[in-house]
């Protein structure tokens, strides 16, 4: 079985590599555009996937409402930006305040969702928590739809087109550049948070063994809350960035983005932070090539097909460890 897997993998990689090189030689600019587009896509997925993978690592729950947190981040930014815009504030101040509000509110929502829907169910069967998560996601979507509007709303980009970037803008726009840079910065900060701070250490300990870490004096409830807050913050940043990039948002954007990010997290190995980033980039880039060279209308089908293929051949993902179930 193992050899067959490796051979199959090599064969697929060979075919893909052959076609990739052929296309690269045929039209290098188009290839580069697709690659960078995929990188941007992957960066956004990574920002959302982090929340999934961190929460899963700690409480083994697929946080279905995570996509909605991302949507609420984008929505809050839109609201704050338009109110301040109407009051005639300077655009740089608007951009900063919109991002700050989006992050703060998303964190608050993430925190509250955990307290309402997941905390009372911590000892319940996993199915209960999962259904509760789906209910929460449904509730948040409809709450935003009813309180705001079901229509798409145009979102004016908070990131201006920089003048010095003009000569390269046809390959990668300044918004796309900002997305990639922000993602890299967020990843580094997050990596440092997990690796070097006290709360990061507590998170890793809780992920390994909840009971043991509470025995050595870690407040597990606080750690779980912090995880939700951190995940929500990165999702909110992703939400604001994608809204700037796409230029319109509605209450439903969280659903598909959340699903894709989840697929990315599974692809990288759920529970692993570097895995989520790697999986997101792989998914984003391969999606971009697929839509660029094959059928663009089957983009979402492609992502799900990838998910099914990983689950069949390597359910623990690229970087994940194989887990045996314990009694």
């Amino acid at each position: 079985m193992r050899w067959i897997n490796i051979l199959l993998g090599l064969a697929v990689a060979g075919i893909l590599g052959f076609y990739g090189i052929r296309e690269l030689l045929a039209d290098p600019v188009y290839f580069l555009e697709l690659f960078l587009g995929g990188l941007v896509r992957g960066s956004i997925y990574a920002l959302i996937a982090l929340g999934y993978t961190m929460v899963y690592g700690i409480i083994q729950l697929i946080n279905f409402a995570h996509g909605e947190i991302y949507m609420i981040g984008a929505m809050t930014a839109l609201i704050v930006a338009s109110v301040l815009g109407l009051w005639g504030w300077h655009s740089a101040v608007i951009a900063i305040l919109a991002v700050v509000f989006a992050v703060v509110y998303s964190c608050a929502y993430g925190f509250t969702v955990e307290k309402i829907a997941y905390k009372p169910l911590r000892t319940a069967p996993r199915l209960s928590a999962l259904i509760s998560a789906i209910g929460m996601s449904l509730f948040l979507q409809n709450y935003v739809m009813l309180a705001q509007t079901p229509e798409f709303q145009p979102f004016e980009s908070l990131i201006p087109d920089f003048a010095f970037w003009e000569p390269y803008a046809h390959i990668i726009t300044s918004v796309e550049l900002a997305i990639i840079i922000t993602t890299v910065v967020v990843m580094i900060l997050l990596g440092m948070l997990i690796k070097f701070t006290k709360i990061g250490k507590a998170m890793r300990a809780t992920a390994q063994d909840k009971i043991m870490s509470s025995l050595v004096g870690i407040n597990v409830n606080n750690v779980i809350s912090t995880t939700f807050v951190v995940g929500s913050a990165t999702a909110a940043i992703g939400g604001v960035l994608i809204a700037c990039h796409v230029g319109q948002i509605n209450f439903f954007i969280g659903f598909l983005a959340g699903l894709k990010a989840f697929i990315a997290a599974v692809l990288g190995g759920i529970g692993s932070v570097p895995g989520a980033v790697l999986g997101s980039l792989v998914l984003g880039i391969s999606e971009s090539f697929f839509t660029g060279y094959f059928w663009s209308e089957y983009e979402d089908v492609f992502a799900f097909t990838i998910l099914v293929i990983i689950l069949i051949f390597r359910p623990s993902g690229i970087l994940g460890k194989h887990e045996t179930q314990k009694v």
């Binding site: 829907a117 209960s128 509760s132 209910g135 449904l138």
Partner: peptide
Amino acid sequence: LVFGALQVIVMV
């Protein structure tokens, strides 16, 4: 909206 809220409430 009510369905979503009910799912959470029933589960809890």
